[in-house]
Structures are given as C-alpha cells and as structure tokens.
C-alpha cells in the first residue's frame, strides 16, 4: 500500500495572522484541564499491556526452563527437583518437577518480554505494577512469592480492535 504523504497546501497568511493564531493556541490550552496525573496522590490509570513487571503464576509453571534459556541477559533463576508420585493403584510411579526457586533479577531485566512470549503454559504475565524500587541493587532479585503476588494485579487483555482477526486461541476455544 502506498503511503500517502499529506499535501501541505496552506493559504498565504496575512501579516501577524500566525502570531495571533499562536496566541489562541496557548490560550485554549491554558483553558483546557491539564493532562498531568498527580502521581503519588493519584495512581496512574495504566493500559492492560503496560510492561510494568513480570508476574509468575506458579501453578502453571512446569519448570521447562524455556524462559531462563531464552532470557537475553540471564536474569531468571530457576531451581527445581524431581519428585516421584506413587500411583493410587498399581502402575509405575509418575515423576514430575517441583519448583524450588523462581527469581527474576530486575537489575538485569530489560523488559523485552521474551520470557512471557515463550512460556508454553501461560505462567508468566505482564503486570502494570511498577512500584518495586529498592535501596540496594541486590534487593532487586524478586523471588517467586513476590512474583506470585503480582499476578493479582494483571489486567485482562484489552478487547480486539474492530475488524481485527480473532486470535488463534479464541478460534481454538470456539471450535472446542
């Protein structure tokens, strides 16, 4: 599709007309309410896709290590051990991995969101929460309990734009 360049065709302005126009613009802006959000007093109304912090839903995590391997700056720490569950009646024991530690070092994280993208079981989410500054750089390593708390602040995804193609997940749900 060709990009339309806007055709600039302004009539020759009379002397001083531009100066007056400028004055009206500033005056109109002054009479409109300001866009400032008084942050510490008023929390900002952030959109659902805000990259504030990465939250972890532990129940969904299968310890596949995909996130930590894909992380460009190696800021995700995962420790796990294997447990064997005895079957209820007969059969062989089922082994599964149990998450011991999941931590993200936000001093290293560059908020690329690759971990959220690669997670195959929807265990990682973007949360708009952003107030997690610390006094020491080592305190920026946040453990799984803190990451779990942030899942409660995750916003539902925004509705699709009009005319947008439905997502694959949505189609799969509809078919099922």
């Amino acid at each position: 599709m060709a990009i339309d360049t806007p055709h600039i065709d302004q009539p020759e302005a009379g002397a001083g007309q531009g100066l007056l126009k400028g004055l009206t613009v500033t005056l109109k802006t002054m009479l409109r309410p300001a866009v400032t959000v008084q942050y510490p007093h008023v929390k900002p109304d952030l959109p659902a896709r805000t990259r504030g912090v990465i939250a972890l839903k532990q129940a969904n995590c299968t310890v596949c290590y995909k996130c930590s391997r894909e992380c460009p700056d190696w800021c995700i720490y995962i420790d796990a051990h294997k447990e064997t569950h005895e079957p209820a009646a007969g059969g062989r024991g089922r082994s599964m991995k149990v998450l011991d530690r999941f931590a993200i070092d936000y001093a290293l994280c560059m908020y690329c969101g690759i971990c959220v993208e690669v997670c195959p079981f929807d265990a990682l989410f973007w949360s708009p929460e952003f107030e997690y500054a610390e006094y020491g750089i080592d305190e920026l390593i946040h453990e799984k309990d803190r990451l779990e708390e942030w899942t409660y602040t995750v916003l539902p995804p925004p509705p699709l734009e009009r005319g947008a193609e439905p997502s694959e997940e949505h189609e799969a749900e509809g078919a099922a």
């Binding site: 500033t26 005056l27 802006t29 002054m30 300001a34 866009v35 400032t36 008084q38």
Partner: peptide, 13 residues
Amino acid sequence: KVLAHMQARLGPM
C-alpha cells in the same frame, strides 16, 4: 502556573 497550564501541565502543586 500560566506557563504550565499553557503546556497542559499543572505546575507547582
């Protein structure tokens, strides 16, 4: 205040 509001800000608060 006037400069701030002319720039859609609030100025000192």
